[in-house]
């Protein structure tokens, strides 16, 4: 079921940014941040863009032994448990061609899907230079509590 579900970022307080295909995700509510293995980056991009894991995997999952369906399923579950994504009710898909591109990247992955969680910079995120908001009066951006 998880494999065929579509997801979205759980809230505006989940910030995801990509640098050359590598993602950092910040949960501004709890001050945690997350990084991924190479295959984890691909799966994160897929599910946060509206692709289901099943669409990402396609029909031939035998090309990369690191990518057992159970591993992908467990990874998506961890994303859900971490509060980074929520299941979407609508069924609108992702952009055309994204699945093909990501599928190719996934086949070349060298690491199992994995997520690293950090909470050592919570005090930094409190001052929130992360949110894309206006700074009207010259004082630092302050995240509403």
């Amino acid at each position: 079921m998880i494999l065929s579900s579509r997801f979205a970022l759980a809230s505006d307080n989940i910030v995801s940014e990509s640098f050359d295909g590598e993602f950092v995700v910040v949960d501004l509510t709890f001050g945690k941040y997350f990084s991924f293995s190479d295959s984890g980056n691909v799966i994160w991009q897929a599910v946060s863009s509206g692709l289901s894991a099943a669409e990402l995997l396609g029909v031939d999952q035998s090309k990369n032994p690191l990518l057992a369906v159970s591993e992908v399923e467990a990874f998506v579950l961890r994303l859900l448990e971490a509060g980074l994504i929520v299941e979407r009710a609508d069924t609108e898909g992702a952009a055309d061609g994204l699945a093909d591109s990501l599928r190719e990247q996934l086949q070349n992955a060298a690491e199992k899907p994995d997520i690293q969680v950090f909470d050592d910079l919570a005090d930094l995120f409190l001052a929130d230079p992360i949110h894309d908001v206006e700074e009207p009066a010259g004082w630092p951006v302050v995240r509403p509590t």
Binding site: V15, E17, F19, E22, F23, V24, V26, Y33, S35, Q116, F118, L121, L124, P129, I130, H131, D132, V133, E134, E135, P136, A137, G138, W139, V141
Partner: peptide
């Protein structure tokens, strides 16, 4: 204060620094 484009650069910079540290 900070212009919107400078804020966006800062936002990207902070996130990149955090990612590089994690890696």
């Amino acid at each position: 204060g900070m212009t919107k484009s400078a804020h966006e650069q800062m936002r990207r910079g902070v996130l990149q620094a955090v990612l590089r540290s994690a890696q």
